[in-house]
Write a protein that binds this DNA or RNA. Structure first.
Lengths: 202, 202
DNA sequence: CTTCATGTTGACCGACCGGTCATCTATGAA
DNA sequence: TTCATAGATGACCGGTCGGTCAACATGAAG
């Protein structure tokens, strides 16, 4: 039932917000429970450990992402390169909205978590790696279609896709460090200029 | 004297290693003291707080960086675009060496700290921002020289420089998440394809 | 020999950490 | 009506956190 899982959902969304806005280590279970109006024992009824919570948070966010503006941006009806612009725009507006409300740019939850915990927790690292891999596939698709349509010459679309994702994460990192979402808008469009050639056989 | 500052130096380099290999929040002062063979009271004789330690660590690393392989990579005698290749190579070999020794990729200390603490500590954030700004100046210089030499058409060299730095941070992030330094070598060279055009007056 | 600054020592502080647990309540099937 | 199960409660655990402090060692200047 809905009510049964309501507690779990409240924990999940509260944790996601806090992890995103601060960091994994900096947010305690007590704080999550207080904000979600859940008792600690209740928390551990749904999540065996903080690590499990993090896993669930990543899954949750990845789902919402995939079915949300990522699905919009990578709409098959859009010309491939417009999807890139859409993605940059979406990132910009999201970060800007967050900053307008909270005064600071949270950045990308996945990027944040990846840098914070991937040296400490291999399970979470590989989960985040999977999220990135899946995201990179969208870029890959778009690039292949752009080649098919003759919009760009053939290239190593898989590597270029990964490079584009890296660039996206990189500008979000820089923007967060400057606490200025405009960085995303200023640098973002350069994502379309990234190219990795096909390795030619020798 | 040397010996007088030896304790401070030991704290500093131990903290740098631990922060780089794990994270700011995950490393306690006790652990730093134990590894550096320093008493806790002694620690607080040199650093008023953990935040001050972080500041010193960032300064320390930024100095070593600037006078180390960054100075080498951006050697004025190298052709501008070869400096970019050099920088990517240096990042690759450094991360690879670290992984071979410790089994995991530490990534970029500045990037790690930036994503972890820039929403929590504005002082540290702005210090990290300054480090990035300084690093971006090297790219800027190289780009301006490439234009002067007629190697590339004129472009918005400041924005492109920032984009290149973002890309570098992005591929290190991705590589760390995949725990595979090869990502840097595979995607890195694409840094040379990044371009942001000059905004034309309308 | 005294004074003073620089540094060292380790016990100590309250707060908080992630996590446990016995106990209680609500619900719905048999 | 009974009983099992899912969930809620909050006290409690050992350990660690960042940080403090009074006492003490050392060595150079007067």
């Amino acid at each position: 039932m809905n009510v049964e899982h309501d507690t779990r959902t409240r924990i999940l969304s509260t944790a996601r917000e806090l992890f995103h806005g601060r960091s994994y280590a900096d947010v305690g279970i007590k704080e999550i429970c207080d904000l979600a109006k859940v008792q600690k024992g209740s928390f551990y009824h749904f999540f065996p450990s903080k690590q499990d919570l993090a896993m669930a948070v990543i899954d949750d966010m990845a789902d919402e992402w995939a079915h949300g503006f990522v699905a919009e941006a990578f709409d098959q009806n859009l010309p491939p390169f417009e999807r890139l612009d859409y993605m940059i725009d979406a990132a910009y507006y999201w970060q800007k909205a967050a900053k307008d409300i909270e005064g600071r740019m949270p950045g990308c939850l996945f990027g944040n978590l990846a840098l914070e915990i991937s040296t400490r927790d291999d399970v979470l690292r590989s989960k985040l790696n999977a999220v990135f891999h899946k995201a990179s596939r969208r870029f890959h698709e778009a690039l292949d279609q752009a080649v098919e349509l003759g919009e760009i010459p053939p290239l190593d679309s898989e590597a270029t896709a990964a490079a584009m994702l890296a660039f996206l994460e990189g500008i979000i990192l820089l923007a967060k460090t400057r606490n200025d979402p405009e960085v995303i808008r200023d640098l973002g469009p350069a994502i379309k200029t990234l190219r990795i050639e096909l390795a030619h056989p020798n």
